[in-house]
Amino acid sequence: MNILISDELLNGTVTNQFEMLVESDQLTVAELITKRVTLEIENYNKRLPDYFNGLVQPKEAERTLNGYKLKAKQLIDVEKQVYIALSAFQKNGFFVLVDNEQLEELDQVVTLKNTSKIAFVKLTPLVGG
């Protein structure tokens, strides 16, 4: 089934939206994050556009208004990005909501429906802190 994925800010503003194919109606939060990150890295690596718009910033990139800009066009390592994303989730770098219910643990099992909506809510770091 195809599930709607959204990236949102705390105020509810949607900054990115796409559909992701999910083979099973049950998966863990870790599997959901891994699948999402893998999909976006594979899509980026196929085209190598100027900007990467993904869940987490690659180490070799700088944040810009249009997304993350890599210093030189290069492939992004899927395993590294998955590790960074899973770590960021555990450190509250972003929240995951499925049908407006917050998921809290990587091993938490999620049951999806055809109408399920998944939101990744990115937290922006405070400046000067």
Rank of each mutant, 00 (worst) to 15 (best):
M1A: 11
N2D: 12
I3M: 01
E8V: 15
L9D: 14
L10M: 07
G12W: 06
T13R: 10
T13G: 02
T13W: 01
T15S: 11
Q17A: 14
Q17W: 03
M20N: 00
S24I: 02
Q26E: 14
Q26R: 11
L27E: 03
V29Y: 04
K35S: 15
T38E: 12
T38L: 12
N45G: 02
R47N: 06
L48G: 08
D50T: 11
G54L: 08
E60H: 07
E62N: 07
T64Y: 10
T64N: 05
G67C: 01
K69R: 12
K69G: 02
L70V: 14
Q74Y: 00
Q74I: 00
L75P: 01
E79P: 00
Y83E: 10
I84Y: 12
I84D: 09
N92A: 08
G93L: 04
F95W: 04
L103M: 13
E105Y: 13
L106Y: 06
V109G: 00
V110P: 02
T111M: 11
K113C: 00
K113D: 06
N114R: 05
T115D: 05
I118A: 05
A119H: 10
F120I: 08
K122N: 05
L123R: 12
V127I: 13
G128N: 11
G129N: 09
G129L: 09
